[in-house]
Amino acid sequence: MTATELTVEGVTLTAGAHRLVRDVSLTARSGEVIGLVGPNGSGKSSLLRAVYRVLRPRAGSVRVDGADVWSVPVRRLARTLAAVVQETGADFDLTVRDVVAMGRTPHKRLFDGDTGEDTLIIESALAWVDAEALADRPFDHLSGGERQRVLIARALAQQPALLVLDEPTNHLDVRHQLDVLGLVRRLPATVLVALHDLNLAAFYCDRLYVLRDGEVVVTGPPGEVLTPALLREVYGVTAEVAVHPRTGAPQVTFLPGEPTGAAARESVGRTP
């Protein structure tokens, strides 16, 4: 697993007449963990779909180490890029070990069985997400959090140089949220991750891109990006931001009160 560079340049995405993302540019340098944050509907998931080649840009390009992802054969791209999405849309009639083993497919020829190396990689991936005890259980019998850990293990078994994660902490309890993001932080890979939890994003990401209405509002290190003014403007909330005394990362505390910014404008005229 060797880290690689991701370059998104001037990407615009549409769905029919609806614009999802407009002229977004982003760079993830080798080994960086880059976070996408922003309110629901801001374009985070749509942008990720363009990166892992599900949604073709109307304009702009997505490049991995200089190669346009849409020009690279799917199998070859899968040896470099792995994605964990919010909804798989499938209930696999397989054991957990079999699902994780699917991550080895891009590295094999058709009908090849698992080698000893494959087995070691699969077992290691299960251990990384604390899922060894689930290995022989049917995937479709798992809870939402258990499934999420298994799908992350499948992506790890792929040994990607670029890992794309869409809300990977969804359904996970606090312990496994910290375990998974800590693992992501340690991987010798470049990571692009969409997160709702701003405190997790502040602690685990090198840089953040804040999206609103399909556009990048600001980008930079978490300590520069996460300010009360930004949170008021983008999220429409009142917040305090302090430096955590032990971690040194920004710590966001949301305060109850009247909505501000866009939220206040949207509330005008509503019937209580």
Rank of each mutant, 00 (worst) to 15 (best):
R186P: 08
L195F: 01
G248I: 10
L255H: 07
Y235F: 15
H244N: 01
E233G: 03
D213Y: 03
H196N: 11
Y204D: 04
G223L: 03
E215N: 01
E215G: 01
L230D: 06
A239S: 13
V217E: 13
A194C: 11
T247D: 00
D173S: 07
P256E: 12
G214A: 09
R175Q: 13
H244F: 12
H244Q: 00
R185H: 14
E240G: 09
D206T: 07
L231Q: 06
A201G: 04
E233T: 07
A189N: 06
E224F: 11
T190N: 14
G214V: 09
V218G: 01
T238K: 08
H176T: 00
L178I: 11
V241I: 06
L181P: 08
P221Q: 12
L255A: 07
A229S: 11
R207A: 09
R185A: 12
L178G: 07
D206H: 14
F254K: 00
P256R: 09
D213P: 04
L192P: 01
A249I: 14
N199R: 03
V237W: 14
L200V: 08
V191M: 01
V234K: 01
D206Y: 00
V217N: 04
L183Q: 12
H176I: 00
R232H: 15
Y204E: 04
E215Q: 13
P228L: 05
V191R: 15
L192T: 09
L192I: 07
D213L: 12
V210H: 10
E240H: 08
A242H: 11
E215Y: 00
V193A: 01
L200K: 03
R207T: 12
R246M: 13
V252T: 04
L187K: 11
R207Q: 09
N199A: 10
D179H: 14
R186C: 03
E233L: 13
R212Q: 15
D179G: 05
L230N: 02
V237R: 07
G220A: 07
T219W: 02
Y209L: 09
H176A: 00
D197I: 03
L192Q: 10
D179A: 12
V237S: 07
V184P: 13
